[in-house]
Amino acid sequence: MPHDSDPSHPHSLLPPDPALRVQALETILREKGLIDPDALAAIISTYENDIGPQNGARVVAKAWCDDGFRARLLADPMPLLQDLGFYGRQGEHMVIVENTAALHNLVVCTLCSCYPWPLLGIPPAWYKSDAYRARAVREPRRVLAEFGVSLPDSTAIRVWDSTAEIRYLVLPMRPPETADLDEVALCDWVSRDCMIGMGLPRAPK
């Protein structure tokens, strides 16, 4: 290792293989009584099964069906989200941004990977990638094109760089062909990507 003796980076003392690195840290912390392995399993299971884009989709579908809810969601979302149980770590200060024919919203964190966990779960790899962090603010239309989204000239793009603890969720436009669907059916139209602004609502496959 090039900096084995670098005191400011003790991590270089751990095994280089990341899987072994986790294991070593976990072992030391467990032996000290500072980590409960069952708690690690509970955290993983929560984000694998319980907290994910299905939460955000419920909020979007509800906003599409209920104008009063939509208005309150845009004006002051936290009481509504708390009522729905979608509150917690990385979602303490939510702002919902609404797409219109004139304005399309896109969310990024150029400095790390800030993301509304209680509504969308753990971010996908592309959201955390250097390429997205570097490019989304500067060339959002090229970035969107790589996800198959092309916006007309009449639509401006507003990119939200989450540089503080405010977290953003995009409220997409409701597709006209969903006019007859109820809230439950609408949830299937709302993908994770469209709540980041990197997709548009589509019919479920």
């Binding site: 899987a19 976990e26 884009p53 400095l111 779960g121 753990i122 990638s129 570097a134 994770r192």
Partner: peptide, 29 residues
């Protein structure tokens, strides 16, 4: 933000695992 030279993005399907590897999940937890 704004850096030039990074390559294309790679979309993920909705059914991709939340954690690509077990140790990713362990690291987060």
């Amino acid at each position: 933000g704004g850096r030039i030279g990074d390559g294309p993005l790679h979309p993920e399907t909705a059914d991709a695992p939340v954690f690509a590897k077990d140790w990713h999940a362990r690291a987060l937890a």
